[in-house]
Nucleic acid binder design. Structure first.
Lengths: 228, 228
DNA sequence: CCAAAAGTGTTACTCATACACCCATGA
DNA sequence: TCATGGGTGTATGAGTAACACTTTTGG
């Protein structure tokens, strides 16, 4: 007996991307303005349909590159949304992804999307179930950030300890003690202190650090677990 | 401008279920033997295609009920697998779910599936990418079990402390100290000690406990976080 | 009375938290 | 010289981990 696949119905599948950025102070969300019906003119996550010869990761990458001009963006699949009435005009199953964009990336937003960054703490109401997608993305981002060094994806290559602390404070919506934070980070031993200083924030200047990916992966393979 | 959806291609979507059970000693996996090509006769996760008027959760529930006769099984969506060549005969996108089945459930396996329980520590090689699905499911199960009281889904309604400890030991593949484990559980204050004893395991007998779902949810709403 | 599992508290240690002052520099 | 942010160490408390003996009872 051979399976006959033709009896099964097929579905439209889309990806929707929750794009996070960090400006040194707030977590931001890159949203696009719909230029077609339904819900034309309203804010939405950027998305696109999955093509025939494409994995979901491929689709999400294509959508992100088309919007931002960037390649190799950090991306993680989140969840599949399949409520029958989630989009009014057609039955579309959508898979959400979240992306992390570093502030020093040479981002060049494609005009056709009318995209805009919004503070994660106050962004407009989104179409369909996109609000829920964002909510779930924040939950996952927090979990990931607490167990893996993905925070660095949101920072420029070189950053100050204050940048790093501000980032984690805004991700987890908590304040940390400067000394405790720094000694925790130092005890991880996965940063390299450069001999450069950021002179824009103070007269004294503050040292810049880099995330040492090789060292981290070496420690990982020796059983080290990132935990913040 | 209105979007024309007809230009986008549609996909076959399936769900695949990783079904966990606990027999008091080991975590088990319920697998089915394929009775159609390709890979006829090999072991596989139970799955099925997503119908038109069905969410993914609906599909997974339908598949599980068809196999086990049970309703209201604990179920969580895991991940969407979309590699182009993941199934050789057709491009099928599959969403994995994991399910937890309690040992005291009146499970009545549908004969047509040739299903069988296997110890999670030694089960046969599975078709396609199902091995990877299982691996990811175990990771998620561990995470969930450490942050939410889902362990009870795998136990009968009444269970001994030893049952509970054995369960967590096999989930996390670690041994715990009896006294520390019990005092941790007691400090959570989410179990009810019944006045019944399980007399099968010893002459003295050991008290049976129930998970107090109401109390847990009340504590949850007051900010309590389950953590083991 | 003995074998086998159930039940029960205390101590030591590790890790997280709280906390305040001096330093370097450009204006 | 002073105003501003950068950089640094210690003491306390909480929570986790280590550890052994007594109780019960059916055979």
């Amino acid at each position: 007996m051979k399976k006959d696949y033709s009896q099964y119905i097929k579905h439209l599948i889309a990806v929707d991307c929750i794009i996070f950025g960090f400006d040194g102070e707030n977590l931001n969300l890159l949203l696009v303005k719909r230029n077609f019906e339904p819900k034309k003119g309203e804010w939405s996550l950027v998305g696109g349909f999955v093509n025939a010869e494409e994995t979901l990761d491929d689709s999400a990458n294509r959508v992100l590159t088309s919007l931002t001009g960037l390649e190799n963006i950090y991306l993680e699949q989140l969840k599949c949304y399949s409520e029958l009435e989630r989009e009014p005009t057609a039955r579309i199953i959508s898979v959400s992804y979240y992306a992390l964009i570093s502030t020093d990336e040479n981002i060049r937003i494609n005009e056709k999307y009318s995209a805009k960054w919004f503070d994660l703490k106050q962004f407009p109401n989104l179409i369909f179930d996109h609000n829920k997608m964002v909510q779930n993305a924040v939950t996952r981002l927090r979990y990931r950030a607490s167990t893996q060094p993905i925070g660095f994806e949101l920072l420029p290559e070189k950053f100050t300890m204050k940048d790093l602390q501000s980032l984690y404070e805004v991700i987890f919506d908590e304040k940390y003690d400067k000394r405790n934070f720094i000694s925790k980070i130092n005890s991880m031993d996965i940063l390299v202190k450069t001999d450069e200083k950021d002179m824009t924030s103070s007269r004294k200047g503050s040292f810049l650090y880099r995330f040492d990916k090789e060292k981290y992966h070496k420690k990982l393979s020796q059983g080290y677990l990132f935990k913040i």
